[in-house]
């Protein structure tokens, strides 16, 4: 499928996963991501080696992912906010055991049961842990259906490369919307699998575990994982700039919100306001360095996101007091209009 097709974001993730060699999926239904398991059920159940299993819960699903990832298979699960909360115990185990997998969160309005409209209020959960202990996920934030597909493929590669769980953090709008998308089968590298638990034929025991009762031993292990995170921070920061070169004001915004901001920036430019957009593509690792560099050049920075102010904390850390950092957010499933964001941009001047 290398021609343009119209696809929902949720379905594009499903097809991209299959193209990336992920034939194993475990999940539990929740709106607004249910098209993804439905798509994979239709496809995988007809494939000879396809495994699609609707688990009894999100908790079970993530632990099935843990089991399958330990055998070296490309494996995925997906859910939406409340379901991700349930998965966080398993995610912590997977991160600690250094297993590759892709976890999709099609974020919805919260907290609590909330609603099924688009939101970005799971940013802390995705980038600051969510589950217990010291760990990090690589978190990719697509802003289009094409990126939902592309980042899914990229996510599997990053997961295998670093033996680390990767989260694709979309939202209800990206999951539900259709856009033209081109799906190309990627080349899949051979990764070292000498650690997997697939039967110890001709070798000693391989062990997937995350228990180290001796604190000193555990501390040493956590340091090892953090050395890996440091490499990820050095190599894998991704972001996109739009009209930043001459900007007096820098907006930092990601995912669906960044599209609205882009339109608002076009409107502001027509009014003579020099404003640019920096869109984090990896929200972990966060593009701290480039934002810090812009903070030397611009008059003000503003974070725009669908939350009460979560990513803005990372923006403030990056700016580190060099210039004022403003915040504009809508939350609980409400999207701002481009005119609303424009009004906020005008307030910066």
């Amino acid at each position: 499928m290398t021609e343009k097709v119209m696809m929902k974001g949720n379905e594009a993730i499903g097809e991209a996963a299959i193209l990336a060699g992920c034939l194993t999926y475990f999940g539990y239904p929740i709106t607004p991501q249910s098209e993804l398991p439905a798509y994979l059920a239709r496809r995988l159940l007809k494939m000879e080696n396809g495994i699609f299993l609707q688990a009894e819960s999100e908790v079970a699903a993530i632990n099935m992912v843990y089991g399958a990832a330990g055998t070296g298979k490309r494996v995925m699960t997906s859910s939406s906010s409340p379901g991700i909360s349930l998965k966080t115990e398993g995610i912590s185990y997977i991160a600690s055991s250094q297993l590759p997998c892709v976890i999709v969160n099609i974020v919805r309005g919260g907290p609590g049961l909330g609603n099924i409209a688009p939101a970005q209020s799971d940013y802390f959960q995705a980038t600051k842990g969510g589950g217990h202990g010291d760990y990090r996920l690589i978190v990719l934030a697509p802003a289009s259906v094409q990126e939902m597909a592309d980042f899914t493929m990229l996510g599997f590669d990053l997961a295998d490369e670093y033996r680390n769980p990767v989260m694709i953090m979309g939202d209800g709008a990206l999951g539900q919307m259709m856009e033209p998308v081109v799906l190309k089968k990627p080349e899949i590298k051979k990764y070292n699998h000498d650690w997997v638990t697939d039967g110890a034929k001709g070798r000693g025991q391989n062990l997937i575990c995350s228990i180290y009762l001796d604190p000193a031993e555990m501390e040493k292990y956590v340091h090892e994982i953090y050395a890996k995170y440091k490499i990820i921070e050095e190599n894998e920061v991704r972001y996109e700039e739009y009209l930043c070169d001459d900007a007096d004001y820098l907006i930092v915004s990601y995912g669906i919100t960044s599209r609205i901001v882009r339109t608002s920036i076009d409107l502001a430019r027509k009014k003579g306001i020099k404003v640019g957009l920096l869109r984090p593509i990896t929200v972990w690792p966060f593009p701290t360095k480039v934002i810090s560099e812009y903070a030397d050049k611009v008059k003000k920075v503003m974070a725009v996101e669908l939350s009460m102010g979560q990513m803005v904390e990372d923006v403030r850390l990056a700016v580190n007091g060099k210039v004022p950092v403003e915040f504009f957010g809508r939350t609980a499933g409400v999207l701002p209009s481009c005119n609303e964001v424009l009004a906020e941009i005008e307030k910066l001047v």
Binding site: A173, I256, R259, I260, R262, L335
Partner: peptide, 11 residues
Amino acid sequence: DEPVGSPIVTE
């Protein structure tokens, strides 16, 4: 003609 901003139409 431009890349689509918000897919959700409020105006």
